[in-house]
């Protein structure tokens, strides 16, 4: 039983895992994640892989938008830059997968810096509008620069290999994705233990006084864009390798909006929130689909309403969370955890 939490040195208070209980539960989670692919069926495995990739993208966006306060309506386009980089390098130049992963991240980060560079001067909604324009311009490039991107037909990718093992099924892919999710989440958590993460939050909360506290706004806003779009690029590379093809349809404005919805539903400015949001927003549309499938037995036309129903629920989730639970699923999770932390002796 856990009755209290005492730390006697500053070092233990600054430690990565603050107490035995959290280490224990993280261990349990890790074991579950490792055994999951052996137990799950094809569908769940596929969904887990998609979710993992989405988590990387959502964590990236939450660093930029949730923590550093820089609105981006172009996240899907950065994921797209990563995806196309991976597709072009692997299909044309036979660059190995792991190197592609790095190159995709770097390329997306470069684009992020180019778009984010002016963000020092652009505030709030003006930045939102500028990133919207960047999204639309990149979409146009994906479709129309046919000699490089393959136009609307896109590019097919060869089967990726990691250390000589061909990732030719979802089972093998799972472990690659899991490793990268753990790396990205850990890196993001680390960021907010140091001055870099603190500077991000300071810029979000009050950017003017942040500068007077010694923070170089241009430098740190650029950092935020670079890290965020690097993760987007990694997610993009994983996504197109996982699906073995890339087309412009994967990265529309709606996808950028979906990522924003994830971090809002999950919790702005929370790594855990990004994870929750990614899981939630990946599974909810699937749940609507199966619900309508069930209804199809009674109303034969139910399935034809799938897309509009998903639209309505998607919108309701965004509006509902913002109005009633602005800190998202992460906040709900902390409330539940705090309730049980000292249970049954909370007083």
């Amino acid at each position: 039983m856990h009755i209290g939490d005492y730390r006697v040195t500053y070092a233990s208070d600054e430690a990565v895992f603050v107490n035995a209980t959290s280490r224990f539960w993280l261990g349990i989670l890790f074991i579950f994640l490792l055994t999951f692919p052996f137990l799950a069926g094809d569908y769940l495995l596929f969904m887990a892989n998609v979710t993992g990739i989405t988590i990387i993208g959502a964590v990236g966006l939450n660093i930029l938008t949730g923590f550093a306060g820089q609105i981006s309506l172009g996240h899907a386009a950065f994921i797209g830059v990563g995806g196309y980089t991976a597709a072009i390098f692997s299909s044309r130049f036979d660059i190995p997968f792991l190197l592609c992963l790095l190159l995709s991240g770097i390329m997306a980060a470069l684009f992020g810096i180019i778009v984010g560079g002016p963000s020092l001067r652009l505030k709030g909604l003006y930045l939102g509008i500028a990133t919207l324009a960047a999204q639309l311009i990149l979409e146009f490039v994906f479709v129309h620069w046919e000699s490089v991107t393959g136009g609307i037909r896109g590019i097919n990718l060869p089967t990726p290999k990691v250390f000589g093992i061909a990732l030719d099924n979802d089972f093998k892919f799972y472990f690659v994705i899991l490793t990268l999710v753990i790396l990205c989440v850990t890196a993001a958590r680390n960021l907010f233990r140091t001055r870099v993460g603190r500077a991000f939050i300071a810029i979000r909360d009050r950017d003017i006084s942040a500068e007077l506290m010694g923070i170089n706004l241009l430098q740190y806003k650029t950092y935020a864009f670079a890290i965020s779009s690097f993760m987007a690029g990694v997610a993009g590379c994983l996504y197109v390798n996982f699906l073995k093809t890339v087309t412009p349809e994967y990265f529309p404005l709606l996808e950028s909006v979906r990522y924003l919805a994830m971090i809002i539903v999950g919790g702005l400015g929370s790594i855990l929130g990004a994870i929750f949001g990614a899981i939630f927003m990946t599974f909810v549309p699937e749940m609507i689909k199966s619900l309508l499938g069930l209804l199809g037995a009674i109303f034969p036309t139910a399935m034809s309403f799938l897309f509009p129903f998903q639209q309505v629920i998607f919108g309701l989730l965004i509006v509902g969370f913002l109005v009633f639970e602005p800190h998202g699923l992460a906040e709900i999770w902390y409330r539940i955890k705090n309730y049980f932390r000292l249970w049954p002796f909370e007083h």
Binding site: T65, G69, I71, G124, L125, G128, V257, L260, A261, I264, L268, F305, F307, P308, F309, Q310, Q311, V312, I313, F314, G315, L316, L317, I318, V319, L322, V323, P326
Partner: peptide, 24 residues
């Protein structure tokens, strides 16, 4: 009094609801 991002997103959510309803 909510931050810009939340207000922008609430209207985006609204647009999604209206689009879905119109199609239904």
């Amino acid at each position: 009094g909510q931050p810009n991002i939340s207000i922008i997103m609430v209207t985006i959510g609204l647009s999604s609801i209206l689009l879905g309803i119109a199609e239904i």
